[in-house]
């Protein structure tokens, strides 16, 4: 079954239509990388998936369940339904958004105790396992602001994964990091991909997309402009726009690397 099915998704901010009918399906265990120039609506698309933004049209189906109920020409979403979706969909933000007043462990445990209703002990055990997966078990008692950006982002990943979501959304998870800290976060994400985590990742790390993604989606002018396997789309783009986009990422050297190998 598809973990996520998006059909005809539309979203406007005031007069500006940012998403003009997006169709996208994500299968279990897939890693989808979402590309597009700044302002092309990548964040908006992710935020519609977990309803941090309310779609204006189209349907979103999580694990076979279409969210919202059509009533006349509007769709009504109940708070409990949205809470349920959000607890099933993890999200990792560009700015980490850890809770600074809670310890690392406390950050990971909050959703487990309050949303999953786990006991303190069970939640702590799960939190430590997840922190261990991102290599931060020894920082469980530290406060987020005492950590490096890369460590903070890995805690955020642990916080998302601990909920055992059906998929995790990443919105430019490495864009706020110093270059030398990008690798550790990408490694944690690659590990998740190898463990079979279903993910949609907005990133400008084309090397990561090339090596880890099952599917690359290029967003342009509110639509899916090009889509396919990374070694096709990133190496032999079919559209002029996609070519231009790749050309603007001067650090992307995958085709040459492949040629050199």
């Amino acid at each position: 079954m598809d973990v996520l099915r998006i059909e005809g998704l539309r979203k406007s901010f005031g007069p500006v239509e940012v998403l003009k009918g997006i169709d996208l399906t994500v299968k279990k265990g897939e890693t989808v990388v979402l590309l597009g120039s700044s302002g092309s609506g990548k964040s908006t698309l992710l935020r519609c998936v977990n309803f941090l933004e309310t779609p204006d049209g189209g349907t979103i189906t999580h694990n076979g369940v279409t969210i919202g109920r059509k009533s006349h020409n509007k769709t009504i979403y109940t708070p409990s339904e949205l809470k349920a979706v959000r607890s099933q969909v993890g999200m990792v933000f560009q700015q980490f958004n850890l809770f600074p007043h809670l310890t690392v462990e406390g950050n990971v445990m909050l959703g487990l105790t309050r949303v999953r209703k786990m006991s303190q002990n069970a939640a702590r055990k799960r939190a430590l396992e997840c922190l261990d997966r991102v290599g931060l078990a020894d920082k469980a008692q530290a406060y987020p602001l005492s950590l490096s950006g890369g460590q903070q982002q890995r805690v955020a990943i642990a916080r998302a994964v601990a909920m055992q979501p059906s998929m995790v959304l990443f919105d430019e998870p490495t864009s706020a990091l110093d270059p030398e800290l990008v690798g550790e976060v990408l490694n944690a994400m690659r590990q998740l991909a190898e463990d079979g985590t279903t993910m949609i990742i907005v990133t400008h790390e084309l090397g990561f997309a090339y090596n880890v993604a099952n599917c690359v989606v290029f967003l342009h002018e509110g639509r899916v402009h090009e889509k396919g396997a990374p070694h096709e789309v990133l190496v032999n783009p079919k559209t002029e726009r996609m070519r231009e986009f790749l050309a603007s990422h001067t650090l992307f050297r995958i085709p040459e690397q492949v040629a050199a190998e």
């Binding site: 977990n50 941090l52 809470k83 959000r86 933000f93 809770f99 309050r114 949303v115």
Partner: peptide, 25 residues
Amino acid sequence: RGQWEAARAIGLSSADTIRFVILPQ
């Protein structure tokens, strides 16, 4: 805003968001 969003993104209710995330800060 990121604090409200991070809390919502893990499925916390509004009441829990305010009680455990926003008010303490």
